[in-house]
């Protein structure tokens, strides 16, 4: 199976030599999504204070189930492991297929001992104090942007397409994104995010990615806010795909169940 995928990937660069920006992003989007996924994520938040780096570490386990049909698009449960003062905190989210329907979200705070209903978060809000927003983590839908192929460039020795993505609606923190896509594998290698004033805001580098069966696993990536010099290194490990997590796992019952 893996060999087949490799050949398919190599073929891409020949068959789609003269592609449009939209076609390139369609190929990126065409990589299959697992039905369910578990991964441990470690985020290192790095700030510069008086010329010295200050590091803080956040650790979570994320459980996610994606749905092909029905009213839900996905359900996910995030369990906070570090720092210790937030250990046990849980976040449950139900994402609906209907694009105009807000997500349902709940937060379990062990110190309060209760599950709190929370409003769908602003997508432009930072996730756990990192440089990633909820929108960056959740990803944008293919049809959310207009694409234009700007050319080809090498990124860290990898030949890439350079694609500009301009949002169709204003409900995003970004004016545009510039995306570098690996010409052979059709996976993103770098993204630049521009703020509403069209100034470069953040740069995301995919430092390590791996093909696990049919699925691409991001192992390490770095997001740097060039305006504040703050950066976040996100490392994912202990990936488990299609383990058959049951639907009833994504409920308040399991949200409260601190391991």
């Amino acid at each position: 199976m893996k060999n087949g995928v490799i050949i398919w990937g190599l073929m891409m660069s020949f068959v789609f030599g003269q592609m449009t920006g939209r076609q390139i992003m369609e190929k990126v989007d065409a990589w299959p999504e697992p039905k369910s996924m578990v991964a441990k994520t470690t985020m290192t938040l790095i700030s510069i204070k008086r010329g010295r780096e200050k590091k803080r570490v956040r650790e979570i386990t994320r459980y996610q189930r994606n749905f092909d049909k029905g009213k839900f698009k996905s359900k996910s449960l995030i369990r906070f492991l570090k720092p210790t003062d937030v250990k046990g905190t849980g976040f449950l989210m139900w994402e609906y297929r209907e694009s105009n329907k807000n997500d349902d979200q709940w937060l379990f705070l062990p110190a309060l001992g209760k599950v709190k209903r929370i409003a769908a978060r602003e997508k432009s809000e930072n996730f756990m104090g990192s440089d990633f927003t909820y929108e960056d983590i959740g990803g944008r839908k293919l049809d959310d942007d207009e694409y234009e192929l700007l050319g080809e460039e090498e990124v860290n020795g990898v030949n890439c397409y350079k694609v500009q993505a301009i949002p169709k609606r204003k409900d995003t923190a970004y004016n545009k994104r510039i995306i570098w896509v690996d010409k052979n594998w059709f996976v993103m290698t770098k993204v630049q995010f521009y703020d509403k004033n069209n100034r470069l805001l953040k740069v995301l580098d995919f430092l390590k990615q791996r093909l696990d069966g049919n699925y691409w696993s991001v192992i390490k990536m770095k997001m740097k806010n060039v305006q504040t010099e703050h950066k976040t290194i996100m490392e994912m490990s202990e990936y488990e795909y299609d383990t058959g997590i049951r639907d009833n796992f994504f409920t308040k019952r399991f949200l409260q169940r601190v391991k």
Partner: peptide
Amino acid sequence: FSKPVLGAV
């Protein structure tokens, strides 16, 4: 009860 309404709860 609790219910989100127009971005608030």
